[in-house]
């Protein structure tokens, strides 16, 4: 087990503050503490070479988990073991072996080319010259950054900047890389390139842990999904299982030669009846089998066209978030 987390809890203490004159004077003497339970005892384990996605609405506890795993924050309770280190206790030794990309916090320097920032990391992580050149060349190649790294950062596009953030975070060849919303605000092409890069590095044995709001990140990258809500893990399994989490359902669109009969029955929900010859419906395979349904419609109305689709993952996620 590369990462093992047990019963992790985190409680923040804040104070209420008013803005009127009276409240200000009052807050000088008595302050009302407020306790926020960001994590309520979560446990999970991650093996070497995994690519795990963390999902959850804003304020669910994703960032807190990530901060604890990167050694930035120490928890209120529970244990964390990453490669034999306790992140917040052995911080300096530990962080030398990990990398991190924060979609909203740049490690590059605004007014100078990315390569100068890379050199700063070279010094900090004590990367030998030869190795530095080799790794940089490799990543520049993979990410198409040849001319980019010598231009001032402020002149780069958001996509180019994010690619450079990846180089910055991985020059010292970390075994685990944490990604916090790495594709936020990027266009489709840049997203694809970055996802390709992540998969490529993952093949070479790098473990990735990412948080995101973009479900297509999860669909393209992660084999395993952990959904966090209200400081608890509400789901932890593969993406295929996630799809099936609330029953195995299919979305069916059908158009026929003869008028459709009333299709409503156990396991079948008509979502849209466009005309007598055309309808969209949701089929619960556990209750009503697909071949039986097709036979039913064909017999009564003769199928002209029929499509079967997975329900959009957003729907499943919405259900998970609401609990």
């Amino acid at each position: 087990m590369l990462i093992s987390v047990k019963n992790l809890t985190k409680v923040y203490k804040t104070y209420q503050r008013g803005s009127s004159f009276k409240e200000t004077v009052k807050s000088l003497f008595v302050r009302k503490p407020l306790y926020v339970h960001a994590l309520k005892g979560i446990s999970f384990g991650i093996e070497k070479g995994e690519l795990v996605g963390f999902l959850g609405p804003n304020g669910a506890g994703k960032s807190t988990t990530l901060k604890i795993l990167t050694g930035i924050l120490y928890p209120s309770g529970g244990t964390v073991d990453v490669m034999g280190y306790i992140p917040w206790q052995d911080r300096k030794k530990y962080v030398a072996k990990i990398g991190a990309v924060f979609g909203q916090k740049s490690q590059l320097l605004w007014d100078i080319p990315p390569i100068d920032a890379f050199y700063l990391n070279k010094a900090i992580y004590v990367i030998p010259d030869r190795e530095f050149q080799r790794i940089m060349a490799h990543m520049v190649e993979l990410l198409d950054l040849k001319d980019v790294i010598r231009k001032p950062t402020r002149q780069l596009s958001l996509g180019e900047r994010m690619k450079c953030e990846f180089v910055m975070a991985m020059l010292h060849q970390p075994e685990i890389v944490f990604l916090d919303e790495p594709t936020i605000g990027l266009d489709v092409i840049a997203k694809d390139k970055i996802r390709e890069f992540i998969l490529e590095m993952n093949k070479k044995g790098v473990t990735f842990i990412l948080t995101t709001h973009d479900l297509s990140d999860i669909e393209h990258l992660a084999r395993r999904v952990i959904v966090v809500n209200h400081g608890e893990i509400v789901f932890d399994d593969t993406i295929t299982t996630l799809r099936r989490h609330w029953g195995e359902k299919k979305i069916i669109a059908v158009s026929t030669v003869y008028p459709l009969p009333d299709l409503t029955r156990p396991g079948v929900t008509v979502t849209k009846r466009i005309s007598d010859y055309q309808a969209e419906l949701e089929l619960d395979l556990a209750v009503y089998e697909l071949n039986k349904f097709i036979a039913l419609v064909n017999k009564s109305s003769t199928i002209r066209d029929l499509s079967v689709q997975e329900p959009p993952i957003e729907e499943t996620i919405k259900v998970l978030y609401k609990t």
Binding site: T70, V95, K105
Partner: peptide, 14 residues
Amino acid sequence: QNGTFDLLLIKPKS
């Protein structure tokens, strides 16, 4: 203020 203090904490130095 802008949240980048975290970036100092993920470096293997004090």
